[in-house]
Write a protein that binds this DNA or RNA. Structure first.
Lengths: 333, 333
DNA sequence: CTGAAAGCGCTAACAT
DNA sequence: ATGTTAGCGCTTTCAG
């Protein structure tokens, strides 16, 4: 624009320091002076230059968000949670999609650090030692959202994927009496997928069933791979009587795939999704799903970051949010 | 971090000006010198401070994106288009959701301008004169994406909503012989909704049908309002034989609502959605929909912005992208 | 091809 | 309560 703090100072007959105090809400300003300055600001249409402020104060009030794919419903919801809390605390979001590519993730981090973000929220497929090193080098807090790191060195917000999956399988097997349960995995987050898989295996065994590798289908998180999974399972000699998927979108695929095979859900096949996105209500039969509070994960991550940024007390750096099964019509209650 | 251009200069035995030249790719540097500097940068782990750069150069290589709601599939897709092109041109995105609230939109714009964004992409419900004024005051280019402004004062990227809706209704009435067509509106963008509505009315009249206000149901863009719309229409004495909605999500609602009433789609009722989101494939019957290229709208908007920013030649500031009807199983072809 | 010096617009001691 | 004075880390003339 051109109008600076200096112009305002002249207009209001004060020093630039006083103007600075006013725009920063410093209390040490006589009300009359403040008013004079405010008037001048208004008349001149002064807008403080956040870049200059950032340089002088070494704080930018902006945080970087690295997300696998903003067009994915799951992450978009999470992003919204981050955003709402960020704006509540007057932070801005610099948002970039990484497509889960490690190089891109690291590059984005670097770019964001160049922009002097005050902190970073990271969502990604896996946290390698390269990641950890980069995060440590960052000199600003980094928080993992819906992303697991074995070493637990970084603050993070997640649900207990192992228990969640175990609960889901148990829920299913309780109503089915020793019937096979299929599992459609997702490559989205390597570690999380491992935890889910382990939960699945343990629950299967706990319910007295034999674990069978054939009952695991590697999905890619898309609707189409749900369709494919249904096809895969239903062509087996002893198809599972229930299928649990790693995401709702794949669950819809499974349901429709089953219906295409003339298999009725939930009578002949129970299906349970994961995440409890809005999709769960947008299918017939409606989808039973493991609720993962995406919005909350985002919101809590951002809240945690603000605490770190303001030096507030942190009780727990590894936050585990509750999950639960939301029963709908794709399973027999 | 602490390591500055000055440290690098000392380490490489050159002046900071030379270091600056190297990191800016200025050609006027002897290869040997460049190499020395590069080595020093590497050894010291120097990371240029984009904030300082921004202050000195008056360019931040970041653009503001004001979006109604990032968790909405439609906008998320659009955002992805923006992002991909932005990252291709080395721009960063500052992203904020406005929930279509005018005050919030204007506030966000202001904040982004304080951050000295080089340009803005705006998506919103309506462009009032206050908006126009604010945009003009901005001193950086503002582009409307999937957002219509009557006055055509601002560069924008859209489809022809009027024609698109007209096409959809014509498509429907051609296969139905004088049957009524219902329309579920959306409040998302006031002006766009008007255009769609006008397209609907004109097409109805053109096909020799009488226009009937009862055949328009005011939706709110949610799945639930699609359900409600189906309920509303099917309880009428002469229910429409086809329904066109302003979004795919509402169309799913209509389909399921109809099925709940025992009405078969498409045999007894044709349904056509709008936007052709991924949702269109995730329902049975699959949904015929008017394709609106969200990703492209985002991508083209961002590309247009980069042109404006680099002073490149612009042929047309009001870009109208093509639409078309994607036929699936919710209508009788 | 390289260096010196003057800012960019603001914050943050330090004075007064 | 208010003013003065250094920078923040970099770009950008202007010299040479």
């Amino acid at each position: 624009m051109g109008v600076t703090i200096y112009d305002v100072a002249k207009e209001a007959n004060v020093s630039m320091a006083t103007v600075s105090r006013v725009i920063n809400g410093n209390t040490n300003v006589k009300p009359a002076t403040r008013q004079k300055v405010l008037t001048a600001i208004d008349e001149l249409g002064f807008r403080p230059n956040a870049v200059a402020r950032g340089l002088a104060s070494r704080k930018t009030t902006s945080v970087g968000v690295i997300i696998p794919d903003i067009s994915n419903l799951f992450f978009a919801e999470l992003a919204r949670g981050i955003e709402d809390i960020a704006s509540m605390y007057k932070y801005h979001i610099i948002l970039s999609s990484s497509d889960q590519q490690k190089t891109k993730e690291l590059d984005l981090l670097d770019n964001m650090l160049e922009k002097q973000v005050d902190g970073v929220i990271f969502m990604g497929s896996s946290v390698t030692s390269d990641h950890i090193e980069a995060f440590n080098q960052a000199n600003v807090p980094v928080i993992l959202a819906a992303t697991v790191d074995d070493t637990e060195q970084l603050p993070s917000v997640n649900i207990d994927y192992y228990e969640a999956m175990k609960d889901a399988v148990t829920y299913l097997s309780e109503q089915m009496d020793q019937e096979a349960v299929g599992f459609v995995t997702s490559p989205l987050n390597a570690k999380i997928n491992d935890m889910k898989r382990q939960g699945y295996v343990d629950a299967i065994k706990a319910s007295g069933l034999a674990f069978n590798e054939d009952y695991i289908y590697p999905g890619d998180d898309s609707y189409q791979s749900g369709l494919d999974a249904a096809n895969y399972f239903l062509k087996q000699q002893h198809p599972p009587k229930a299928i649990i998927t790693s995401s709702d979108e794949m669950a819809l695929g499974v349901i429709h795939g089953a219906q295409d095979h003339g298999v009725s859900v939930p009578n002949e096949l129970s299906v349970i999704g994961f995440d409890n996105t809005r999709l769960a209500n947008m299918v017939r039969p409606t989808l039973t799903s493991v609720l993962q509070p995406m919005y909350d994960i985002g919101a809590v991550s951002m809240r945690l970051l603000t605490k770190l940024l303001r030096g507030e007390e942190i009780e727990q750096e590894q936050v585990v949010l509750p999950h639960r099964i939301v029963e709908r019509d794709s399973t027999n209650a």
